[in-house]
Write a protein that binds this DNA or RNA. Sequence first.
DNA 1: GATATATTAAACTCGATCGTTCAACATAAT
DNA 2: ATTATGTTGAACGATCGAGTTTAATATATC
Lengths: 231, 231
Amino acid sequence: MTTGRNASTPLRGRIDKRAAILDAALRVFVQEGYGLARVETIAERAGVAKPTVYNHFRDKENLFRTVILDGAQRTGDRIVAALDLLPDDGADLAGALTRVARNVIDCQLNDEGWALQRLMYAEAARFPDLFDDALRLGGAHVHIALAGRLARLAHRGHLDIDDADLAAGHFLALVSGDLPTLSALGTRAVTDHDLQAAIAAGVNTFLRAFNATPPDPNRRPAPTTRASTSR
Amino acid sequence: MTTGRNASTPLRGRIDKRAAILDAALRVFVQEGYGLARVETIAERAGVAKPTVYNHFRDKENLFRTVILDGAQRTGDRIVAALDLLPDDGADLAGALTRVARNVIDCQLNDEGWALQRLMYAEAARFPDLFDDALRLGGAHVHIALAGRLARLAHRGHLDIDDADLAAGHFLALVSGDLPTLSALGTRAVTDHDLQAAIAAGVNTFLRAFNATPPDPNRRPAPTTRASTSR
DNA sequence: GATATATTAAACTCGATCGTTCAACATAAT
DNA sequence: ATTATGTTGAACGATCGAGTTTAATATATC
């Protein structure tokens, strides 16, 4: 065991040990839950001695809080960045929305994204304030950014939206609502097929509700990749 | 301490001690998480001695599994029962859907419902099979029941739905997608006003997408139901 | 090279918790 | 009244984990 300072432990600079600890801590916290996660395990997985953990972070609780807030920040930023690929013109709205949804979900289906979500759910009772902070750092930015994009599309006549904030929420709900079930709360891998089907269906419904220029008054906007939706 | 066998301990029948233990266990597990939940605390809250807990349930893990599956079963049954009030005729579709959504949500916003959801999220990594079982017992029934109701409404021409299963998922997502954010994962009470607004908006979008008889081609189906809806 | 700082392994303190054991007690049926 | 079963409080053994201390070592700065 003692994987101490073997050749496998590069002994890189000092600063990034903090990052290594945060990374390992996230994985261990998710796997074991806050209560059963052992600081020594975290130290081992980070390739670091236990006192080093206590040197960087005062105690277990402080480490946990930092893990959550750091992760929420990064995940939120990544999603907001993904929103950049939503064009302002209405060309191929369905395709653009599908790609956006795919990117947003890729950030949340991420090992890290699910891990954070599960951790927050898990420990929301013990750290009530923490969830609010994480939401402000992560979710809120995503919501606002998406709402802004949708509002611009609506303003140019490509979408029929009066409350962009609401529409953004509904878009996210439609497109990712099935994910917890499909992935068993992130513990099971989702097949690409199921994921694409879920996204296509969500985009489809979203456009049925908000598309400003229905190609045919009585038709669904797009046949949307006839997902068999087995189960 | 020793709140032993005072007048405060009714010493009721033997069987319902099992129920009392399950009830207390759910609350304590939710509050503390699986790892930090103390069996002794559960015993105290149930008004029962610790060995009694081990008498009814082999160990902590077995107790936990029983708590989850029991709760999922009951919550699912309650929601399915709530779906009964969705009428088959299309009279006042928006009102009926709103009431259904309200009832479904009341079962999930329930202390117990949130508790179960949070626990499953929390311990999904440690008990992977447990989540699947709970989903089968709880969520699946709800989904199927709602899909059946929607399919009947569609068949009678009141809704424009080709895949009722998908529509059911989208309805639930639209109507309850904002709840985790609003209630801070169930740790904060949601004001009735916010809840009604979220439901109304969800139903509104759902009908924009699936209503078979839009009252006006260019209008939203309902101005978000200013709804007195007592309570 | 000398000095200040960060890291390491190991051992330690201290408290908490699981699951068990046991003697006394309640309850129901015989 | 007696027997069988379930409950109770209390204490116990064993383990486990958070956080600290220490002496030695590696690194960075001067």
